[in-house]
Amino acid sequence: MAIGEEAIVRSELRWAAVSIGVVSLIMLALIYAGIVHHINPPSNIEPIDPKTLHLSGEFTEANLGTRVSAEGQVTSRIVATQFTFQPRCIVLPANQRVTLRFATPDVIHGILVTGTNVNTMIVPGYVSQVHTVFTRTGELLMPCHEYCGLGHSEMFATLRVVPASEFKPDAQGRVSCDAR
């Protein structure tokens, strides 16, 4: 045979190099998105006891929902539980950095917000945290996207993104859907 085995293997290895080049381009684009646009996975190794989180600390009922701190930081605390969110409606300002913090007292849940990159699992034992900036105003859906039991299909919340002018915290820094 005129075409030797070495020539064949060479052609294969050249193609493998092209393949590695292609996936390297993708990896570079991901590093760019991570560093320049701050788009990274919502990793947050912050343990919390699911059995007691409702009794004391930041996830007690009085602390849930959106709060603006004295420094102006906007944080929303949400409990995901079989088969609802507390609260079921959350108000957040547009074009401003906000932090969403989730915890669950029971089983695995997860959320996404339609039309955005907001997405995290909510795993019992950990606080899940997502920082983001919402650029469009309006009502967005925030469903539970992970199977959590027979009532999973009915588990969703509404996220109301309002212009900064309509985002008015009360004296304690609280903003809720009922207040409007």
């Binding site: 993708i26 684009a29 788009i39 955005t116 990159n117 997502v130 983001t132």
Partner: peptide, 19 residues
């Protein structure tokens, strides 16, 4: 590769920062 970059540039990056 073209398809991936289309999704990356037209859908993913415009949806904004999360971390």
């Amino acid at each position: 590769l073209v398809g991936w970059f289309l999704v990356y540039l037209l859908v993913f990056l415009p949806r904004g920062m999360v971390s």
